[in-house]
Amino acid sequence: MKIVSRNLLIFALLLFIYTILFRFGLGELLTAEKWAWVIIISVVYGAMIFFTAWTTGKRDGINNFLFDAGFRWNLTTFIVWGAASEGWFLLGLHSAHETIRVVHITLLIWSGFLILHLILFLILRRRTIKGIHKTNIFE
């Protein structure tokens, strides 16, 4: 059982690539003032993250029995998205329509949800034995 598993690393890498591509596309579309397309790529970006998290998480569950109520995936998304977005601004790659304040507000709200998720995980952890959910031990 690994906390940082291969599937989690694959997810983090793909998320990083998606975020860079999204940031690039978003900047271009905002500069061109193509508002409808901004919504479309945002939805596509969100759907791709969801789909990738779903598939890598499911695959991870087959061989890695560690029960975390999805917290590792949420935390990874928070870290990777936050780092990629902050880096994007620090390198000055953002468009004139974007401000770093939006990234900071998003991270602030998200950290609140992250804490709630952690509390949920700690509550649900009572249903585990040595990190494995009781219902998944005996087959």
Binding site: I62, N63, F65, I129, K130, I132, N136, E139
Partner: peptide, 13 residues
């Protein structure tokens, strides 16, 4: 495959 997976779990426990 199922036996390997199960035994790994039992080994961990």
């Amino acid at each position: 495959q199922s036996l390997y997976r199960t035994l790994r779990k039992y080994y961990h426990l």
